[in-house]
Structures are given as structure tokens and as C-alpha cells.
Amino acid sequence: MTVLGEQQLRIELARLLKRRPIITQAIGEARELGDLKENAEYHAAREEQGICEAQIRDIEYKLSVAQVIDISKIPNNGKVIFGSTVSLIDINTDNELTYQIVGDDEANIKKNLISVNSPIARGLIGKEEGDEVSITTPGGVKEFEIGGVKYV
């Protein structure tokens, strides 16, 4: 996991922990309304509590087992590694793409964050700026030239 990924998980955990007392209060207020069997507010609050607690447990587990890698402390050797940002030039179309290689939980293609386990990342790891690579993707074989590697 990247340092930014860890920070984002910790922010989300803090947000969920702040919701706990609010949900507990909502359950208490719903209980006061009477019969719990037909009390929609009570059941909704209990469901929200269950979802919130599950998310808290999930994030706490991820943080407890995560190996956080600070790319800025790794010697810059010019190679594509976990956490690096890679500029790719599609050899066939000359389109330029930029991806950062991150952990599975951080991956978000809309933000150009790709999982280290994705076909593109696996094809790029260990390569250097100027290298040409052929990567088998679900859409077929793609050929790229590595235009640049940044360690941010």
C-alpha cells in the first residue's frame, strides 16, 4: 500500500468512528417510538450500524496487515516499481497514458491508479524509460513505449 493509500484509509476510519455515536443515538431514539417489530426507523438504524461496524472492521484489518511503502525513500533507479507513476505512449495510436502503480485496495482506473496485480502493471514492473513493452490485456495485445517514470 502507498503512503497516500494508508492516509485515505485512516481518514475513512476516523469518519466511520465519528458516525458510531450518531448511529447509537438514532437507535435509542427509534426505541423510544414504541413497538420494535414494526419500527422502520429502528430497523434502518440497526442496519446502518451493522454496515458501519463491518466497514470499520474491514479497514482496521487492512491497516493491520498492510505493508506501507514510501516510494520517496526507495533509491531512484529509473525502473518501474510499485508506487511509481509511468507515462506510456501507445505505439499504434500515439495516445499518451499515465498510470500510478498502487495496491489492490487503492486501484481506481478513473484516477489512473492501477493495481500492481493488473496485466499492465505486471508488464511494466522492472522496465525502464524508453523500453518498448507488449502487454496482453483483456482487449488484446497492446504495445507501449515507456515515456517516463516518476517517483512521487
Rank of each mutant, 00 (worst) to 15 (best):
L16T: 11
L16F: 11
L16H: 07
L17C: 00
L17D: 08
K18W: 06
K18A: 13
R19G: 06
R19L: 10
R19K: 15
R19P: 01
R20K: 14
R20P: 01
P21D: 12
I22F: 02
I22K: 07
I23L: 13
T24R: 04
T24W: 02
Q25E: 10
A26E: 09
A26L: 02
I27G: 07
I27V: 15
I27H: 02
I27Y: 05
I27P: 06
G28N: 13
E29V: 00
E29H: 00
A30K: 02
R31K: 14
R31E: 11
E32L: 05
E32G: 06
L33T: 07
L33H: 01
L33S: 07
D35R: 04
K37S: 09
K37F: 01
E38N: 14
E38L: 01
E38S: 11
N39S: 02
E41A: 15
Y42T: 07
Y42V: 05
H43M: 10
H43E: 10
H43A: 04
H43D: 08
A44P: 09
A44K: 02
A44T: 14
A44W: 04
A44H: 13
A45T: 14
A45S: 06
R46P: 00
E47P: 00
E48V: 07
Q49S: 12
G50V: 03
G50R: 07
G50M: 02
I51C: 00
I51D: 08
I51S: 08
I51Y: 14
C52A: 05
E53A: 11
E53N: 13
E53Y: 07
A54P: 01
A54G: 12
Q55G: 02
I56S: 03
I56L: 01
R57S: 12
R57H: 13
D58K: 15
I59S: 01
I59N: 06
I59P: 13
I59A: 02
E60Q: 15
Y61L: 13
Y61T: 13
K62R: 10
K62E: 11
L63Y: 06
L63G: 03
S64P: 09
A66I: 10
A66L: 10
V68W: 07
V68I: 14
I69S: 05
I69M: 13
I69V: 15
I69R: 12
I69A: 06
I69G: 07
D70W: 06
D70A: 09
D70H: 12
I71H: 10
S72D: 04
K73T: 14
K73P: 03
K73L: 15
I74G: 05
I74D: 00
I74K: 02
I74V: 15
P75I: 09
N76D: 15
N76H: 14
N77K: 09
N77I: 08
N77Y: 07
G78S: 15
K79I: 11
K79V: 11
K79N: 04
K79A: 14
K79P: 08
K79E: 15
V80E: 08
V80F: 08
I81W: 03
F82D: 06
F82S: 09
